[in-house]
């Protein structure tokens, strides 16, 4: 399988700071997989994705060692435009990324930068608008729409450019429950299409875990753990200790396992339905056994 991203011995220290924010990162992200990144604040999550999308080192000053390659090309040597056609980045605060005065302009901005012809722009615009369900907002100012709509627009902007790699940095942290649901619906659609590498940093593990192929825990500038969601929480106390709270059904299932209500070989569920099924079975078994 081709790797979309390969990171070797990456170290990074921001200007005006004393400690390295990333310390010896080695990571391979296979093409068309979904990677969820979790961890407490200030542990290097955002720094890691900034170095994949080239903001580090192109837009930050600091000390850079090691390498990040996107489909074999080192990010260090690529131009901003080259990177933008390969990697799309959605920021946590959608408002910080507006560049235009209407949603429509905002959406075509990146496409115009890449020099697509007008027909192609229209085609990509329509597609991205369809996926993110913002067709009725095109004429509005990006500042006059709700937080959730803003974030959907921000995603549409990135989708429109059709990069093979899409990175989102806490895309739901500033929006309400309905808005969150919309975003995860979009992520689900993108994952199901299966033709894109997706990297998402998110505190909302409840929604993230069921989507991810792999979960990665950042701690102290290093990759502390990387595993498929089914096994990511095996060592639950340590995960909690790192400041990350598993889905409640997972926590409860872990308790069931520790208390002997389910067998030790039981894989911990992370999806709601799986969790309910496991709880129901455990309850039934426990009562039958009495």
């Amino acid at each position: 399988m081709t790797n979309a991203v390969v990171i070797k011995d990456l170290e990074w220290k921001y200007e005006h700071t004393t400690q390295f924010a990333l310390r010896g990162i080695n990571l391979e992200i296979p093409e068309n997989t979904f990677l969820g990144i979790v961890g407490a604040n200030e542990q290097g999550k955002t720094t890691l994705i900034n170095s994949i999308c080239g903001l580090i080192p192109h837009s930050f000053n600091g000390v850079y060692r090691g390498s990040v390659e996107i489909y074999g090309s080192p990010v260090l040597k690529m131009s901003g435009l080259e990177i933008a056609t390969q990697v799309g980045l959605v920021f946590a605060d959608p408002e910080a990324q507006f560049t235009a005065m209407t949603v429509e302009e905002e959406l075509v901005f990146g496409l115009e930068n890449t020099g697509y012809d007008l027909g192609k722009i229209k085609e990509r615009l329509d597609w991205a608008v369809g996926v993110t369900m913002i067709g009725d907002l095109l004429d509005k100012s990006p500042y006059d729409i709700s937080g959730g709509q803003k974030q959907r627009m921000a995603i549409a902007c990135v989708l429109a450019m059709n990069p093979p790699i899409i990175i989102m940095d806490e895309p739901t942290s500033m929006i309400d429950p309905l808005g969150k649901q919309f975003i995860f619906d979009i992520l689900r659609k993108l994952k199901d299409a299966g033709d894109r590498t997706i990297i998402v940093v998110e505190h909302n593990i409840e929604q993230l875990a069921p989507l991810a192929d792999q979960l990665l825990l950042m701690q102290d500038g290093q990759i502390a753990r990387m595993a498929p969601p089914a096994h990511f929480f095996d060592d639950l106390p340590n995960i909690v200790g790192s400041g990350v709270y598993p889905p409640e059904v997972t926590s409860f299932a872990y308790w069931l396992k520790q208390s002997g209500y389910v067998p030790p070989e039981q894989v911990l569920p992370n999806r709601f339905d799986e969790g309910v099924t496991l709880m129901q079975d455990a309850l039934r078994n426990a009562r039958d056994n009495r």
């Binding site: 309400d176 429950p177 309905l178 409640e248 709601f272 969790g275 309910v276 129901q280 309850l283």
Partner: peptide, 14 residues
């Protein structure tokens, strides 16, 4: 559009 916490919803289903 508010949903109770996951564990509350799970309990309601058991």
């Amino acid at each position: 559009y508010v949903e109770p916490p996951q564990i509350t919803r799970a309990a309601q289903r058991l």
